[in-house]
Design a protein around this nucleic acid. Structure first.
Length: 505
DNA sequence: AAAAAAC
C-alpha cells in the first residue's frame, strides 16, 4: 500500500501521529469498504518481517463431557488438521519455538502449579504454544494476536502478565484494558486463580457499586502488581496518581480490535497508552482479539510496527462445532413463540442460553414477554446498577439461571462453558446503517457458545427482508452457508437442528 | 436510530 506522505520521524511514531494519518485515509477507505465484503486482502506485512510458519489452529475435540459444575476444563486438545490456519509473522531476528509443554517456558514453579493444579491445564493450546514464547522471550516484543473464540487467548496474556511481574515489588507492573466491566472482572478472576501460588495481587479498575462509592481523593493508592479494568476508571486512577505507571512492563488490550477501533475505545486507549509509554519506556504491548477487520488491522499494524503478528483469515474464523441456523418468522410475537415453544422445549435441557437483543429496552421487553409465559430468565444491560450486574452474572455463572437476555455488553469475551445455545433475537447491525451487518459482533456473539471446542447452536431469528439481507451478507463475508430451519412452527424441524448440532440425542 | 465506558 502507498504510504508516501508521512513525515520523517526518527523516533517511534506516536499513536497520535498514526491517528492523523488514519483520518486522512479514512475517507478513501470508507468508499472502498462499502464494496469490500468480498475482499480477501492479505494483511499488510512489514517488508522486514519474516514469515516463519503457517500453523494450523483448530478447535479441539470435545472432551469435557456433559455439563458438570466446574469451569476448569482441561486445555484444548488441538489436532493438526488444516481446517483453519493462522499465520505467524515475526519481526526482527528473534526465532521462537512453539512450546509443546508449559514446562518449556521457564515459568516459576508457582505458576506451573497454578496452571496444572488450579486451572487443570495439562498442556498449551495452539495459540498458547505459539504466542507464549513470543511474549516471554526477551527482548519482549510487542504482539498482535488473533485467534478463534474460546481457543484460550486469556491464558496467553494472563500468563504473560503473571510471569513478567516481580512478586517482590509491591508496585503496579502490568495493566490490562477491557471493553466491559464483566470482562475485567472475569479476567481478574482467571488471573487470581492462575496466579494463586505466586502471591501476586490484582486490582479491578471498574466503577464501584453505589454503596461502595468513595471520592477519588480518599481512595488509597494501588499497590497491586496487576491492574485490570475498563478505560474510564483506569484513566481516572492514573490521572489521580492512584496507579503509578513508571514501573509498568506489560500493557494488554483484551478485545483489542474494539479497544482500538474509531467507533470503539480508540481515544481512551491511546491516552492510556501514551501516559504509560511516557513514564515507562519500553513497555511491552499485547493486543488480543478473535477479530481484526481490515481497517483495524491496518491501523494496529501501523501502531505496533515492530511487533510479532498472528492473524486468521475471516473465512477460517467460524467455529466448526457451533452450528448456525436461520429461522424465518412473521413478526416479533412469533420470535417469542419460537423461543419458548420450540427452542426451549429442547434447548433448555441441554445447557444455558444467551439471547442477544439490540437495545437496552429490548432486554426488558423480551424478559417481560418470557416471564408472562412463566419462563424464568434474567436480563442484563449496561444501565443496571453495578451490584445488579454482578448479581445477574454471578447467578448465571453459578447456573442458577439458565436463560440470559443481553445487549452486546456480553457479546465479547464472556466465558461460560455451559452456554451452548445463542439466539440472535435481533441481528447485529453497524450503527447508522439499515442492513449492514456488524460482522465482528456477530462472530463474537456466536462465540459465546462452543467454548473450548464444545458443541453449540445458534438461531438467527429473521423477520423481514432487511434481516435476510443482513444474514446473506454475513454468509458471504465468512463464506459459510447457514442452513435454514424450514418451518418456524415445526417442532420436528427444531429438534432436527439441535440433533444435527449434537445438543440433543 | 446504539452498546459500551464515565463524567
Amino acid at each position: 500500500m502507498a504510504d508516501g506522505g508521512k513525515p520523517p520521524t526518527p523516533e517511534k511514531k506516536s499513536w497520535a501521529d498514526v491517528e492523523e494519518e488514519e483520518e486522512a485515509k479514512a475517507k478513501a477507505a470508507a468508499a472502498a469498504e462499502a464494496a469490500s465484503s468480498s475482499s480477501s486482502n492479505e494483511p499488510a506485512v512489514d517488508a522486514q518481517a519474516k514469515q516463519i510458519e503457517a500453523l494450523s489452529l483448530s478447535v479441539p475435540e470435545e472432551h469435557g463431557g456433559s455439563g458438570g459444575g466446574g469451569d476448569d476444563q482441561g486445555p484444548p486438545l488441538l489436532d493438526d488438521s488444516d481446517e483453519s490456519q493462522i499465520q505467524a509473522v515475526t519481526s526482527g531476528g528473534t526465532v521462537y519455538e512453539s512450546a509443546a509443554a508449559f514446562e518449556d517456558l521457564k515459568l516459576t514453579p508457582e505458576l506451573l502449579k497454578g496452571l496444572h493444579d488450579e486451572m487443570g491445564f495439562s498442556r498449551p493450546s495452539k495459540i498458547q504454544a505459539v504466542t507464549l514464547p513470543m511474549i516471554l522471550t526477551p527482548p519482549y516484543k510487542d504482539l498482535i494476536a488473533q485467534a478463534h473464540n474460546g481457543s484460550g487467548k486469556t491464558t496467553c496474556f494472563v500468563l504473560g502478565m503473571l510471569s513478567r511481574v516481580d512478586p517482590n515489588r509491591k508496585v503496579t507492573q502490568a495493566i490490562c484494558i477491557c471493553p466491559t466491566r464483566e470482562l475485567a472482572q472475569q479476567n481478574k478472576s482467571v488471573l487470581m486463580r492462575m496466579g494463586k501460588f505466586t502471591g501476586i495481587t490484582c486490582a479491578c479498575a471498574i466503577p464501584p457499586a453505589q454503596k461502595d462509592y468513595v471520592p477519588i481523593a480518599k481512595m488509597p493508592k494501588i499497590t497491586d502488581q496487576v491492574v485490570i479494568g475498563t478505560s474510564g476508571t483506569l484513566m481516572k486512577w492514573i490521572n489521580h496518581k492512584k496507579i503509578l505507571t513508571n514501573d509498568i512492563k506489560i500493557l494488554v488490550f483484551d478485545e483489542a480490535d474494539h479497544m482500538l477501533a474509531e467507533d470503539g475505545f480508540r481515544s481512551d486507549s491511546e491516552r492510556i497508552m501514551r501516559d504509560i509509554q511516557r513514564s515507562a519506556g519500553g513497555c511491552q504491548v499485547l493486543l488480543f482479539s478473535a477479530t481484526f477487520n481490515e481497517r483495524v488491522k491496518d491501523f494496529v499494524t501501523r501502531v505496533i510496527k515492530d511487533g510479532n503478528q498472528i492473524f486468521v483469515k475471516k473465512e477460517e474464523l467460524t467455529l466448526e462445532k457451533v452450528k448456525q441456523y436461520k429461522v424465518q418468522v412473521p413478526d416479533e410475537r412469533a420470535k417469542i413463540a419460537v423461543i419458548k415453544d420450540k427452542i426451549f422445549e429442547f434447548g433448555q435441557k441441554v445447557g444455558q442460553v444467551i439471547i442477544f437483543v439490540r437495545t437496552k429496552q429490548s432486554t426488558k421487553d423480551v424478559h417481560n414477554a418470557l416471564t408472562l409465559e412463566d419462563y424464568v430468565c434474567s436480563s442484563i444491560q449496561g444501565s443496571l446498577d453495578q451490584s445488579e450486574r454482578e448479581k445477574i452474572i454471578q447467578e448465571f455463572k453459578n447456573g442458577y439461571t439458565k436463560v440470559l437476555i443481553s445487549t452486546d455488553v456480553l457479546a465479547r469475551g464472556f466465558d461460560q462453558a455451559q452456554v451452548n445455545l445463542v439466539i440472535n433475537y435481533d441481528m447485529p447491525i453497524k450503527f447508522g446503517t439499515r442492513d449492514e451487518p456488524d460482522y465482528e459482533v456477530y462472530l463474537h456473539r456466536i462465540g459465546r457458545a462452543g467454548r473450548f471446542g464444545r458443541k453449540g447452536a445458534v438461531f438467527n431469528l429473521l423477520c423481514g427482508e432487511t434481516d435476510n439481507t443482513v444474514m446473506r451478507k454475513i454468509e458471504t463475508y465468512f463464506q459459510h452457508n447457514v442452513p435454514e430451519v424450514r418451518n418456524w412452527q415445526s417442532e420436528e424441524d427444531f429438534e432436527r437442528a439441535l440433533k444435527d448440532a449434537g445438543l440433543v440425542e
